[in-house]
Each structure stands twice: as C-alpha cells, then as structure tokens.
C-alpha cells in the first residue's frame, strides 16, 4: 500500500489511498504506515477517500495512536464520511480520536 505524505508545517498528513480498510488489508496498512510513525511525531490521517472501515481498521488506527503517544507524538483524523464517523461512534472511538473536517484544520490544531 503506497501512502502519500503531504507536509503542512511540521505535520505529516497521510492520505489513505484505499476505499476500504478491513481485515483484508489492515496488516498491509500497518506495515506501510510504521516508518511514517517512526519518522514523525505530528501525524494526520486524511480519510477522505475511505468509504468503509471495520473493527480491524479501527484497531489499526488505535494501534497507530498508541505508537505515537508512547513517544509523545499525536495523531489526528480528518475527512471522514458520515458512514465512517458512524462506525467510530458505534464503538465510541470518536471520543478517543481527535477528529477534524479538513486536513488544514487538523494540522493547525497541533500545538506549535
């Protein structure tokens, strides 16, 4: 899985290329994103391309959040469709993640 990174200030914005993030491709996503999480401490996942996420996908995001926060880093999410947001709500993950409408809003939300 190729992940495109866009830099906004000191923030790495990762564009999720897949339409679906499910048990079939979470392992692939986790290994593709691992070097990015190591190299950056301020990370935004842009989910505007994402149309479907399941519990494995949510689990992958939780794992990323934990990896970053153990090193003092932060993860924010943006660009969620209503359906994706509803899936987050279903397991109360909307309370765990910082969620923004756009990537610039998410990037600006980091403490300088």
């Amino acid at each position: 899985m190729d992940l495109a990174i866009e830099k906004i200030g000191g923030v790495a914005v990762v564009q999720l290329p897949a339409k679906d993030l499910d048990a079939a491709n979470t392992a692939e996503f986790k290994s593709a994103v691992a070097p990015i999480l190591k190299a950056h401490s301020k990370v935004v996942f842009d989910l505007s391309q994402l149309r479907f996420i399941d519990s494995s996908g949510l689990g992958a995001f939780l794992s990323c959040l934990r990896q970053l926060s153990t090193r003092g880093g932060e993860l924010k999410l943006c660009g969620m469709s209503t359906q994706i947001y509803q899936t987050f709500e279903l397991v109360r993950m909307h309370k765990i993640f910082d969620i923004y409408d756009t990537k610039s809003e998410a990037a600006e939300a980091f403490q300088p």
């Binding site: 519990s55 494995s56 992958a60 939780l62 279903l90 397991v91 765990i96």
Partner: peptide
C-alpha cells in the same frame, strides 16, 4: 468490549 482505546480488538461481536 473495552472502549478506553487500550485494546485494538474485541469489538466485532458488540458491533
């Protein structure tokens, strides 16, 4: 399920 964010799995049946 554990909603604290400390576990990455265990949501399927609840969902």
């Amino acid at each position: 399920p554990d909603f604290s964010g400390s576990r990455e799995n265990g949501f399927g049946v609840y969902m």
